[in-house]
């Protein structure tokens, strides 16, 4: 059961969290860094694979599963808030 939770957290949670993080990074790169939209999307999308890999490794390496879940949840939530904020802000 714990193994199943860990695997799900790594694969599904990791994917959702990574998606939120790269979306926030792309938004910040455009809004604050003045990067072109296509460039920001391409760059952060590619970074997504590295971030996802790091999250997968972390979820399997850390003995405290709850710490991973909370950490990942906090970063994803924060990233999603940034995405929502940027979407509302007039460009």
């Amino acid at each position: 059961m714990k193994t199943f939770a860990r695997t799900m957290l790594a694969i599904v949670g990791g994917y959702v969290g990574t998606s939120a993080i790269i979306a926030a990074l792309a938004g910040i790169a455009v809004a604050a860094g003045g990067m072109e939209r296509s460039e920001a999307a391409t760059l952060t999308s590619m970074l997504g694979f590295v971030i996802y890999l790091a999250v997968i490794i972390w979820s399997f390496a850390d003995p405290a599963l709850l710490r991973v879940a909370l950490g990942l949840g906090a970063v994803s939530g924060l990233s999603y808030a940034v995405v929502l904020l940027l979407a509302r802000a007039p460009v």
Binding site: S19, A23, A26, A41
Partner: peptide, 15 residues
């Protein structure tokens, strides 16, 4: 296939 696997950054900046 980055645009298939991680489209969220495209959605974020293109709406």
């Amino acid at each position: 296939l980055f645009a298939i696997y991680f489209p969220s950054s495209i959605w974020a900046v293109y709406g």
